[in-house]
Design a protein around this nucleic acid. Structure first.
Length: 579
RNA sequence: GCCGGCGUAGCUCAGCGGUAGAGCGGCUGAUUCGUAAUCAGCAGGGCGUGGGUUCAAAUCCCACCGCCGGCUCCA
């Protein structure tokens, strides 16, 4: 079944839901009700509240409307006529929408005496609506603007068959199983605590190992690409943030502290220290591009309602770098960063979406420099054949940017990599370099992250792999287990030899049945289990079990080690050697 | 920040005005058993926090904290 047909079905189902709600709660006013990627929603203005307990009742009414098999009737009318109809019905939101439609003619869709302003198309009749389910209720601002009234939104989904609906609901269940918040606890990667504060993560041993590996991967890749490593302080004087503009534009996200009458801010970004490194002496055009990298821990006071596991926190670590370059180097630098991102995403097996954000209303820098930067970003995206969406006017006030978004288990998109051009900070801090002719010139600054925030990236990684990390990322790569106590000495020897090769290995020599130990290792998602019993002891071998493939039989310990060893290593991307 | 929901043992949850329950996990014994759960016993809870209503509150009301789903905002 085509995507468009599914959209029509869902859109029609939204209308049926709206009619049901209208019949049950005649006082509600209709706002909007479009199909979405996974279903549909409808926004209502209501002087009460919907709760999830109301949904079965609404579904029942919907089924009744489906059973009535009312035809969807399309009617083309003038805007004036439409206005009259919605005025009579007190549908103030529809009137507002009408005001924004430039055309003289609009279309209405009728089902019995229910009417909605709608471009359509729709199904023939309500009887054609098939498998549907209402999923949740929530608040949503009218027109997505938080200054407007909050409306009541009901989400639902619809399919052509009950089987498809069932499959979708099962997928939601599966997503729950992959949820990084659940797996993070089960796999003992991290925890959060009410008494610590919202959005603050405590990393446990296994989570720290995972971070170390990623951090080491980052260091090697950045070193290869000609980045210099710097480390800035966690707090910097408020004065400096005033100079950068953060105090004016970003204050509500910042934490402040006062020491001996001097105000400091906990850094929400890493750029200032990097700028000061640049400024620490005169810079020649010869040393540009200067690429400064830091695994920088930042604090941002995010609004309480937006926090989400590891994916949106208040303290996080960015694989952050600032590239100071000549304007003529900008494109090449962007290209290098984008390659870097592409290779990294490929390594982890992520598919991603790219977005290009252009000049907003309120912006600094000349029209010309903006255009140049946007062209450079666009050219690189196109040369690389990366499909992208353009977000007109969504750029930062200091420059345009490319954002790379990854999906979590539920298909929600999260920004990870970003490449931002900046004309503002070089100006505010009067950054210069000496050009070949001896003149002072202004460098361009590129802010960029590859994985983004390590916390967020790990959250996405957990869901991506369902907690079953590939060998190189697995906090525990191998677990040795004994069958009975008499196999422990041999088990210890095997353990020692694996460990000596730098493989992360643990032993389970408890007096438990093998099946029990295996079950536990499987649940902990350890990639390889090495089992030693009488046979292995006698033959000097090990029995290997793979997390995915099960029992692989016996083999000499050395061949097992040699086979997995390469995959246990942190991989190296192809790029590098200067870009 | 806004809207709705939720917060009971380490975890998953039941109890929803009359003196706290289950499974898993933990501990202690027994068992030495070859590819996803051996058996038995024991311990463990200011029912998120603080107010209030009531003869009586895990249960009803209010505030705060935290979590969940959205909206807005963002790495």
């Amino acid at each position: 079944m085509g995507k468009e047909e599914l959209e029509v079905l869902r859109h029609s189902t939204a209308h049926v839901m709206a009619q049901a709600v209208k019949e049950l709660y005649p006082r509600v006013k209709l706002a909007i009700g479009p199909p979405t990627e996974d279903g549909f929603y409808y926004d209502f203005d209501f002087d009460g509240y919907f709760s999830e307990e109301d949904l079965p009742r609404i579904e029942e009414k919907m089924r009744e409307i489906v059973a009535r098999d009312i035809p969807f009737v399309r009617q083309e009318v003038s805007k004036e006529e439409a206005r009259k109809i919605f005025q009579e019905r007190g549908e103030i939101y529809k009137l507002e929408i009408l005001d924004d439609i430039p055309d003289e003619k609009v279309t209405l869709y009728w089902q019995g005496d229910f009417v909605d302003l709608c471009r359509g198309p729709h199904l023939e009749s309500t009887g054609k609506v098939k498998a549907f389910k209402l999923l949740s209720v929530s608040g949503a601002y009218w027109r997505g603007d938080e200054r407007n009234k909050m409306l009541q939104r009901i989400y639902g989904t619809a399919f052509f068959t009950e089987e498809e609906l069932k499959r979708y609901l099962e997928r939601l269940q599966e997503a729950k199983r992959r949820d990084h918040r659940r797996l993070g606890k089960e796999l003992e990667l991290f925890s959060t605590h009410e008494e610590v504060g919202a959005g603050l993560i405590i990393w446990h041993h296994k989570g720290v190992i995972l971070r170390w590996i990623l951090e080491e991967f980052e260091r090697r890749e950045h070193l290869k690409r000609g980045y210099q490593f710097v480390i800035g302080p966690q707090i910097l004087k408020a004065e400096l943030w005033k100079q950068s503009g953060h105090y004016d534009f970003y204050r509500e996200h910042m934490y402040f502290t006062e020491v001996e009458g001097q105000q400091y801010a906990l850094k929400p970004m890493n750029c200032l220290a990097h700028i000061l490194v640049y400024k620490s002496r005169h810079r020649s055009y010869r040393e540009l591009p200067l690429r400064l990298f830091e695994l920088g821990r930042v604090h941002r006071h995010e609004r309480s309602g937006v926090l989400h596991g590891l994916l949106r926190v208040r303290e996080f670590t960015q694989d952050d770098a600032h590239i100071f370059c000549r304007p003529d180097q900008l494109e090449e630098e962007i290209r290098g960063v984008l390659h870097f991102v592409q290779e990294a995403m490929e390594l982890f097996g992520f598919s991603y979406e790219a977005e290009l954000s252009t000049k907003p209303e309120k912006a600094i820098g000349s029209e010309e420099s903006w255009q140049k930067a946007i062209d450079a970003l666009r050219r690189v995206l196109e040369d690389e054949g990366i499909p992208y969406r353009v977000n007109e006017g969504e750029g930062a006030f200091y420059g345009p940017k490319i954002d790379i978004k990854l999906e979590d288990a539920l298909g929600r998109k999260w920004q990870c990599a970003t490449i931002q051009c900046d004309f503002s900070l070089p100006e505010r801090f009067d950054l210069t370099y000496i050009a070949p002719d001896g003149s002072r010139q202004r460098p361009v600054m590129v802010h960029r992250v590859i994985l983004g925030a390590l916390e967020r990236f790990i959250g996405i990684l957990i869901e991506h792999y369902g907690g079953a990390f590939p060998l190189w990322l697995a906090p525990e790569q191998v677990r040795v287990m004994s069958i009975t106590d008499r196999h422990i000495p041999y088990g210890e020897e095997v353990l020692g030899r694996i460990e000596a090769r730098g493989i992360r290995v643990k032993g389970d020599f408890r007096n438990e049945k093998l099946g029990y130990k295996i079950r536990q290792a499987q649940l902990e998602k350890v990639p390889y289990m090495v089992i030693v019993g009488d046979r292995e002891m006698r033959e000097g071998t090990v029995a290997v079990r793979s997390r995915e493939k099960g029992d692989l039989g016996s083999m000499p310990l050395d061949s097992f080690i040699e086979e997995i060893w390469p995959q246990c290593q942190i991989p190296s991307l192809e790029g590098g050697d200067r870009t």
